[in-house]
Computed example of a mutant assay.
Amino acid sequence: MSPAARPDDPAAATSDPDQPSAPRPGRSGMSLGRVLGFPLRLRPSTLIFAALVTLAYGSVLARGPHAGATGYVVAFSFVVLLFVSVLLHELGHALTAKRCGIGVRGITLELLGGYTEMTRAAPTPGVDLLVSVAGPAVSLGLGVGASLTALALPDGGLVNELVLQLAVSNLIVAAFNSLPGLPLDGGRILAAVVWAVTGDRGRGVIIAGWTGRIVALATAVGALLLAQLGPTSPFGLAFALLVAMTLWHGAGRAIRAAQAQRQVGSLDLLSLARPLAPVPGAMSLADARQLLADSPDPSAVLAVVDDGDRVVAVVDDAAAAAVPAERLAFVTVAMVARDLAAIPALDAEDDAEQVLAAVRDNPAAQHLVTSGEDVLGVLRVADIARALESIRK
């Protein structure tokens, strides 16, 4: 299984029904350098899984034509080729996303396959569909190519055994990943189709999430039935149930993320922006705070204006809070202010999703809210966090 991860979370501009920005999944794991320019990481659990597959599959081969250590060598080679196949699958997603103008943070290989982490959600259903189809298409191509190669090789050889297993595994990955349920690629395809038909991205994600739960239940029931009806190894049964649990968890996360996205979308984040309280830069911080306390809106943010009453800087909350009480009368507002050019800005026309994406990509404590060259106010990340927490509760 190799679902492609995307940011679908409200604060991630969010995907990843598959993920305010929580720790990004692609940031964990051991770095393996770069492949075609994309950072590649490996989860430690992947090594454990590789060892278990090698031992389980090797023991089966050792009882057949590849006796002794040869069976384990073939099994290990198969595992290596399988992870190369998963990497190629994810590169299909990554290269397609890059071609469509979507940034890629990296590719991570993990216990049950891998995922590609992208910087933002697809801008249109067509792009989402194209990126989602790319992975299974690569796996299908590998499976067909390996099948044709196996037919051309003499039967019974080690190479033929490896190529045949590679063909079967890639065809299974392509077919299983195309099932219409999140977090599988087929779920992304279904979500994109529903989005295109209804114009509602969230509805597509929720529908694909629920079908993902159906796929998870079907996987678990199928594995248990096979265990009852025929010889199924304990490892094979455990693996199938682990896949089912992973699908259920991913589908549920997608549903919750889409529901939260809808709630956040109804929140006018820019209404949380605090107005500016203009003061001359030479005014002491003590006098400015007193002036602010006596004003109609004490929650306003102190802003430095020049002789033409144009805002040129905004008081930095952390710098102002660090000034000792006995020094407030001697520290000017300009001394604890930041120039406008040094503060990230948000456009007043941005919607909630765009604001959250901008804050995620540039997690500063405060952002300017602008309209053209005019500064309308300051949006504090702490205010956004409180609003999101209120929605969550």
Rank of each mutant, 00 (worst) to 15 (best):
A337Q: 03
G103K: 02
D16A: 14
I107F: 07
A238C: 10
G58R: 07
G265H: 04
W195Y: 02
G230R: 12
S266Q: 15
G92I: 05
L226S: 12
T232N: 06
G37R: 11
L368E: 13
A223V: 01
G209P: 10
S169I: 15
A300V: 09
N362E: 13
S371M: 04
E353Y: 07
G230E: 10
L376E: 05
Y115S: 02
I384C: 01
R327L: 12
A342K: 11
V336W: 00
N362K: 13
F235G: 08
V53C: 12
G250C: 05
E110I: 12
V73N: 07
Y115F: 15
I206H: 05
V381W: 10
G156T: 02
A11D: 15
A50H: 07
F83T: 13
L229K: 06
I189P: 00
A303Y: 08
V168F: 06
G145M: 00
N160D: 11
L130W: 12
D347I: 06
A260Q: 15
V205G: 00
P363K: 03
H249R: 11
A337P: 04
R289P: 02
A97E: 01
T54R: 09
S77N: 02
L356Q: 00
V53A: 06
A22R: 11
P44N: 02
A67E: 14
P44V: 11
S31E: 02
R327N: 09
Q19N: 11
D307Q: 10
G68S: 06
A325I: 13
A257N: 14
D316E: 09
K393S: 13
A260R: 15
G26M: 00
V355W: 03
G106K: 11
G71Q: 00
L388Q: 10
G265P: 00
